[in-house]
Design a protein around this nucleic acid. Structure first.
Length: 860
RNA sequence: GCCUGGGUGGCGGAAUUGGUAGACGCGCCGGACUCAAAAUCCGGUGUUAGCGAUAACGUAAGGGUUCGAGUCCCUUCCCAGGUACCA
């Protein structure tokens, strides 16, 4: 008997697809297009993990399906290849990051090809390729020329011991993640992109996107638009005014003090002599805290009085001005009017420092809390009294504007984007400094390529590694011949991924980042699939760049990604853990509270379910049952290579789609892989029967009605489910087909052909092989997707349940032509023996009849 | 705290949008094949009671709407992700 041998057929078809360029993107624009994009991977040294094939299989299924539905499909892949690991490896070993990167890309490419994804390999992009980053630099130049990129002194995390600047994620509790060395905040010249100029558009255009609501909401929160007022307070005895931003101008009569951020520029001027000492020591201690520390020590409010008073513009009342680090320098104006009556933070501060509290909104009678932030009529507020929040806001803003002491104002949480890194392995900026002023290089000078350096570490003085390439740094302005110095910072990893989806459209085009004609046809991306960890940063940054390119007339759509789906994380296998303390087994909840416990892993057979928890078999000792994130330290990492080796790529693809809904987090199960592998084996055997030889068992006979019904039920379900990305239930429909078909003596070719097509998006290798053996000489990749025929789905009769008072008491079989015949159906229902039993001695109240669904007899 | 999801058999998950809860897969139990095992095939499998027909219970907990609720409404609890002194 011919057995299913994935290793043989899979490499055979992978080679066939590559050799024949089966998935080359068509050049003609006559058909409808479908652009389906994966978030491209960072080619790490550890290779593909099982999370990658999840999203990639989902998009591949859709890509293959859409081709068969007559679309021109653009389905590319590439490499987000700048990044820290290759650079750190370079620091350690001296190997150039380029070498490491190329090697890793080779591994990734091979792994992706091993999984049978239908990418157009002629469109691969690589962010580290000078031909690619030429255009990243070109786009940066556009940003610079439009005034959207500027230099600014910004505090960074500097680690003297490591001689490098660290990202926030690399700093834990004020120490470096690697080595645990102290990290200090230190101002450095940085490039910053003015993303805030696009805040409103980034916010508004979210509404029209077909994205997960949670992702849109995260972006909205990140942008953090809030409407309020900016109000000027005069400082008693000074010329200066202090501006505050508030979303509750209606509470201004309750402003009993004012707080400036310690970094506020006016602090020194308004501090009185006798407060100088305490103010400067407070400022000193605040500056030493990192942002993180400030947040973590947020429990207790601290602050000091400056000695000065501000005048409340609405009533002339003098209120003390304090400084405190609960007010952030970078939000709003860096100063607030404190209204403890209606703000919890202000209430806490007022309590701590014994400052007056005045309610200006009447809380409900049963209100027992401290600050009241809900709605209610204004009190103690002169001309606002009686008004509710919304009217009071309008009223007071009008008053402030009329009196020239304030105006309506909008604020954002979003800050400008810190765009430079002090690293080697990133895009150089297309910038030179002439006489200390930055200037963008002309387009003809692009790309600015990375110079060779002898050491990939920053210099002793903290300058970026590029500063080591002296001959490169010292240059001349190509336009004036003046002496010039090259920018030595490099761009962050986000840069390359901000526009890669455009490069795929015309990867070899040299007249710009993208060929306009092609762009018009292919954009926007119809479906973008990737992890939710990129919900905010990557997706927000890419949208920002896209909008700038739109304004430059380079792209034709306002938004890059019309539809977005996140695949859920795949966790390790479920683990059962019991705990021991001092040699004794203890329950899981007890273990949670004690120290010095030993974890003892248990197998599934050693535990059982009792109530709503798992216990050690035969005992009352509860154990933990949980699937954990895959991690090297836990030792629960599943390697896709191993899975492919044991079961084949088709099984891996099929399993990852069968696990559950794409978006959901779900635990791995090797038994589950075996299950789908069994299904593929059964599918294979459908075509070979139990014959001893390699004999194909497909008949030329006409299909029976039952066979057509089975097939068309599968066509219907699989088609609908693919359209809605419900791959798990689509696969279940395929399984149902195979289970049925297995009972047939042989399978008619007219049934076999369409079935193989249905299977092909999920498990393309086995499908191609079967298709070939069915006598077709070409790949099935561009075959026509079968349509289902309602006619075949009909059956002679249907079975519906009969309820008495809402409980099912019998099932009746109704001939198809009488489904809607109420009298007949109810009559039949009443004849049922088990129904009569329940009707005896009762009065009929109501007869519910839903054709084709249910009968419910309500009696008393 | 706030925002967004979610809670269904031993496990992963289905359920046409208010109409037979548990499709499909895993696991488990029984049987066939085998000297035996693996693989494969056939049958069973929510819980409880019963030989069975059948009945009661059952979708985190409690309440409500309805002829009928996993699905709609209210209250509470738990889990995951995000975010957090943003005025």
């Amino acid at each position: 008997m011919s057995t299913y041998r994935p290793s043989e057929i899979e490499s055979k078809w992978q080679q066939y697809w590559l050799k024949n360029k089966t998935f080359k993107t068509p050049d003609d624009h006559s058909k409808p297009k479908y652009y389906i994009l994966d978030m491209f991977p960072y080619p790490s040294g550890s290779g593909l993990h099982v999370g990658h094939p999840e999203g990639y299989t989902a998009t591949d299924i859709l890509a293959r399906y859409k081709r068969m539905k007559g679309y021109n499909v653009l389905h590319p892949i590439g490499w987000d290849a700048f990044g820290l690991p290759a650079e750190q490896y370079a620091v350690k070993t001296g190997t150039h990051p380029k070498e490491t990167t190329e090697k890793n890309i080779g591994v990734f490419r091979e792994q992706l090809q091993m999984l049978g994804f239908s990418y157009d390999w002629d469109r691969e992009v690589n962010t580290t390729d000078p031909d690619y980053y030429k255009w990243t630099q070109w786009i940066f130049k556009k940003l610079f020329d439009r005034g959207l990129a500027y230099e600014s002194e910004q505090p960074v995390n500097w680690c003297p011991e490591l001689g490098t600047v660290l990202a926030n994620e690399e700093v834990i509790d004020g120490k470096s993640e690697v080595g645990g060395f102290p990290v200090v905040r230190r101002p450095m010249r940085q490039w910053v992109l003015k993303i805030t100029a696009y805040a409103d558009r980034l916010l508004e255009d979210l509404d029209d996107l077909d994205w997960p609501e949670s992702t849109k909401e995260m972006q909205r929160n990140w942008i953090g638009r809030s409407i309020g007022a900016e109000i000027q307070f005069q400082i008693e005895g000074h010329d200066e005014q202090i501006s505050v931003f508030t979303t509750r101008p209606d509470t201004i009569f309750g402003a009993t003090y004012m707080v400036l951020a310690p970094e506020h520029p006016l602090v020194d001027q308004i501090t009185t002599d006798d407060q100088k000492a305490s103010v400067s020591s407070y400022k000193e201690s605040a500056s030493q805290k990192s942002d993180l520390e400030r947040q973590e020590l947020s429990k207790e409010k601290t602050g000091v009085f400056t000695g000065s008073y501000a005048i409340n513009p609405v009533n002339g009342v003098e209120i003390p001005v304090w400084i405190a680090d609960y007010v952030l320098a970078h939000y709003g104006t860096g100063a607030i009017m404190a209204v403890p009556g209606q703000d919890e933070r202000d209430w806490e501060f007022a309590e701590a420092f014994d400052l007056p509290i005045l309610r200006t909104v009447q809380p409900p009678e049963d209100f027992e809390g401290k600050a009241y932030t809900g709605d209610g009529p204004c009190i103690n507020s002169d001309f606002l009294n009686g008004l509710h929040i919304t009217e009071a806001k309008t009223e007071i803003i009008e008053w402030l504007e009329k009196n020239g002491v304030g105006q309506k104002s909008v604020n954002y949480k979003l800050r400008d984007w810190l765009f430079s890194r002090q690293r080697y392995w990133g895009e150089p900026f297309p910038i030179i400094h002439v006489n200390g002023k930055p200037k963008s290089l002309p387009e003809s000078e692009l790309p600015v390529t990375l110079p060779p350096v002898d050491d990939f570490q920053p210099t002793q003085t903290g300058e970026p590694p590029l500063a080591r390439a002296k001959n490169w740094v010292e240059t001349t302005d190509p336009e004036t011949g003046e002496k010039a110095i090259r920018e030595t910072n490099t761009m962050p990893q986000w840069a390359g991924s901000c526009w890669y989806y455009l490069r795929y459209i015309s990867p070899d085009y040299d007249g710009g980042p993208v060929d306009k004609g092609q762009e018009k046809y292919w954009m926007p991306v119809d479906l973008y699939v990737g992890g939710s960890e990129h919900s905010v940063l990557h997706l927000l940054y890419a949208r920002f760049w896209h909008k700038v390119l739109y304004d430059c007339g380079i792209v034709s759509t306002k938004e890059p990604f019309q539809r977005l789906v996140h695949q859920g994380m795949i966790l390790g296998e479920v683990e059962y853990t019991s705990y021991e303390k001092d040699g004794k087994v203890i329950s899981a909840d007890e273990a949670a509270e004690s120290k010095d416990i030993t974890r003892v892993p248990l197998s599934e057979s050693e535990v059982e379910k009792k109530g709503d928890r798992f216990v050690v078999k035969g005992t009352e000792i509860s154990v933990d049952s949980k699937a954990h994130k895959m991690s090297k330290s836990r030792g629960n990492v599943i390697n896709p290579d191993d899975v492919v080796k044991s079961y084949g790529a088709d099984s891996l693809r099929l399993y990852e789609m069968f696990m559950g809904p794409l978006e959901q987090v779900k635990p791995w199960s090797t038994k589950g892989v075996e299950g789908v592998n069994r299904f593929l084996n059964r599918s294979w055997r459908l075509f070979f029967g139990d014959a001893e030889e390699d004999q194909f068992n497909v008949s030329d006979s006409e299909p029976t009605g039952e066979q057509l019904k089975t097939l068309h039920e599968a066509i219907k379900k699989v088609t609908e489910d693919i359209e809605n990305m419900r791959f798990n239930t689509a696969i279940s429909a395929l399984m149902i087909f195979v289970n049925e078909a297995n009972s047939w003596d042989s399978i008619p070719k007219t049934i076999a052909d369409p079935f193989v097509i249905l299977l092909s998006p999920f498990s393309p290798h086995i499908a191609e092989e079967l298709w070939n053996r069915l006598g077709h000489s070409d790949s099935l990749a561009y075959e026509v997707w079968p349509n289902f025929n309602e006619e075949y789905l009909k059956s002679d009769s249907i079975e519906i349940p009969v309820q008495v008072n809402g409980k099912v008491r019998a099932n009746i079989t109704i001939p198809s032509d009488r489904i809607k015949d109420k009298e007949f159906v109810i009559g039949l229902a009443k004849q049922q023996e088990n129904i009569q039993k329940y009707l005896d001695g009762t009065t009929m109240i109501k007869e519910i009849f839903v054709p084709g669904r249910i009968v419910n007899l309500v009696v008393k």
